[in-house]
Computed example of a mutant assay.
Amino acid sequence: MHLAAHAWYPPGRDLTEDAVLAGRVDPRTARELGYDGLLVSPDTAPPDMAVHAARPLLERISCPPDALGALFHASIHYQGHDIWSAPHYIARRLATAAQPIGLLQQCNGGATGIELAAAALLADASCGPGLVTTADRFFPTGWDRWRGDFGMAVGDAATAVVVHRGEYATDLMLHATGTVSVPELEEMHRGDDTFNYTPLEHSPVIDVRRTKRTFIRRHGIDRFYKAAHQGIREAVTESLANAGLEADDPRLRWAVLPRLGRKAMEEAYIPPLTQVTPAELLDFGRPTGHLGAGDLNASLAQLSREHRLNSGEFALILNSGGGFTFSSFIVGTS
């Protein structure tokens, strides 16, 4: 399957050194996260961010909006209105009749959208290309971007990926995917809270640390590490097998990491990944922070933009989302 990708980044950044000086993050947490800074979009709402990512991509590859078959939009945070469909808004702004579909797969939403778009193209010969957008903005009144979760800090960004059969310009080829769900870990984002009647009844802002502390007290952090390591190994192994690649194939140039904090990756993601493949690790997240539903999709765009792959080479892109789901994509230039 053919892919074309673009990422939209806002001009604003919250530099780590400024955040430490202002008390938005403590020095130890800043060191463990390892980010240079976080992207900040103070004025542009997430659905408009998605349009800003999609419109230039469609123009660049000469794909008319009315050729699209489906539009998948993924996010993890508030899109700007209650009881409202951001995907339909994006479709309207792009002037496309593609079916708009919203995805709530947490941080794996962008990856899920690509898999669904590819599946639709394989299943229906009349289906037009699929457009996958992601967009998240972490406004401080609803989400503390530095301290809202363990193991990551979040940046604002949007991405767009067109999945097609080869009739438009191509940045990368999608050769295979591997996705593994570990639903026993959904409790990490629920804790022992009862089900709410309305949003934010349990805390005035999103506080993932609170529910994760409950999970750790009950089960221990090793419960997460064991399940995550197994899920990552299985997803990576599955993707390599589906691509017909051996784990140590010299053509596998890169293993691209999710844009999580450095300590979290060293403890939960890098060990199982390197157990499966010796491919060189690539980390795009230090200047951006974690991009909500868009990590994998932004990395597709960056791989292509920076010409990281030569002809015949492959990259493995690892991603995950709360719930938990782990995905591994194998992409190449041909």
Rank of each mutant, 00 (worst) to 15 (best):
H189W: 05
R190A: 02
E184L: 09
P183Q: 00
P199H: 07
G178S: 09
A176T: 15
E201L: 05
A176I: 14
D193L: 04
P199D: 07
T194P: 04
V182P: 01
S203M: 00
V182I: 10
L185C: 07
V180H: 00
H202S: 07
Y197L: 03
R213L: 13
L200P: 05
L200C: 05
N196G: 08
H202D: 01
G220L: 15
D193V: 01
R213Y: 07
K212H: 15
R210G: 01
P199L: 08
T194Y: 01
L185T: 05
I206T: 15
I216D: 14
T211E: 11
E187W: 03
E187K: 07
L185N: 07
I221N: 13
T214L: 12
E187N: 04
D207T: 01
R217F: 10
R217W: 11
V180P: 00
R213E: 08
L200D: 08
R209N: 10
T214D: 15
G220W: 10
F215C: 10
H189F: 06
V180E: 07
T198F: 05
Y197F: 02
I216H: 14
G178P: 01
I216L: 12
E201F: 03
L200I: 01
Y197S: 04
E201G: 04
P204E: 04
R209H: 03
G191W: 07
F195W: 11
V205N: 05
G178T: 04
H189N: 15
P199G: 06
V208I: 11
T194S: 06
H202R: 07
V182W: 00
E186R: 13
R190S: 02
S203G: 05
F215H: 14
I221T: 13
F195S: 10
V180I: 14
P183Y: 00
F215E: 12
D192N: 08
D192F: 08
M188T: 12
R209T: 13
G191E: 10
H189Y: 08
E187G: 06
V182M: 04
K212T: 15
G178F: 04
V208R: 10
E201H: 03
D193T: 05
R209K: 15
T214N: 05
